[in-house]
Amino acid sequence: MGYERHAAEGRGTSSSRNGSTPNRVETEIGEFDLAVPRDWAGTFKPVTVPKPPASS
């Protein structure tokens, strides 16, 4: 969120600490659970992380 919990700069914003949504991710090394923060203001810009090059 860009600020600490209970910090004054987060008060009154439309996306201030709106909880999270659970998400399970499958990877090559197994599954793990994420808590994805809600972004009601739509300010989050997702980024795709490329796979590392295959080793020879």
Rank of each mutant, 00 (worst) to 15 (best):
G10A: 07
S15Y: 10
A35R: 10
L34N: 04
P52C: 09
T27H: 05
G42Q: 03
A54K: 03
N18V: 10
G42V: 10
G10F: 05
R5W: 08
F44T: 11
E9W: 13
P46I: 07
A35M: 11
S55R: 13
A35D: 07
V36R: 03
S56R: 15
P46N: 05
K45L: 12
R24T: 11
F32A: 04
R17A: 13
E9A: 15
A8E: 08
S55G: 14
E4P: 05
P52N: 06
A41W: 03
G12P: 00
D39W: 04
R24D: 06
N18M: 10
K51E: 01
R5P: 09
T43R: 15
M1T: 10
S16D: 07
G42Y: 03
S15W: 03
T13R: 15
V49I: 12
N23Q: 14
R11M: 13
P52S: 06
N23D: 01
S56E: 05
S56W: 12
T27D: 01
G30Q: 00
T43E: 02
S20G: 07
G42D: 00
S15N: 09
F32H: 02
D39I: 02
T43P: 02
S15I: 04
I29S: 11
Y3I: 12
A54G: 05
A35L: 12
A8Q: 11
D39Y: 06
W40N: 12
S16M: 11
H6D: 11
G30V: 08
I29T: 09
V36W: 01
V25N: 02
T13V: 12
E4L: 13
D33R: 06
V49G: 00
S55H: 03
T27A: 04
T48K: 14
H6R: 12
S16R: 07
E28A: 14
G10K: 14
A35P: 01
P50H: 03
R17N: 09
S20D: 04
A41L: 07
K51A: 13
V49C: 08
N23K: 15
P52K: 14
G19R: 01
W40Y: 09
P46G: 06
S16E: 12
S56K: 13
T27I: 04
E28L: 15
E28S: 14
V36I: 11
K45F: 11
K45R: 11
E31K: 15
Y3R: 08
A7D: 02
V47W: 02
P53Q: 08
K51H: 06
V47Y: 03
I29V: 14
E4A: 13
R17P: 01
R5Q: 04
N18R: 13
I29Q: 12
K51C: 05
R5Y: 06
R38L: 09
P37G: 01
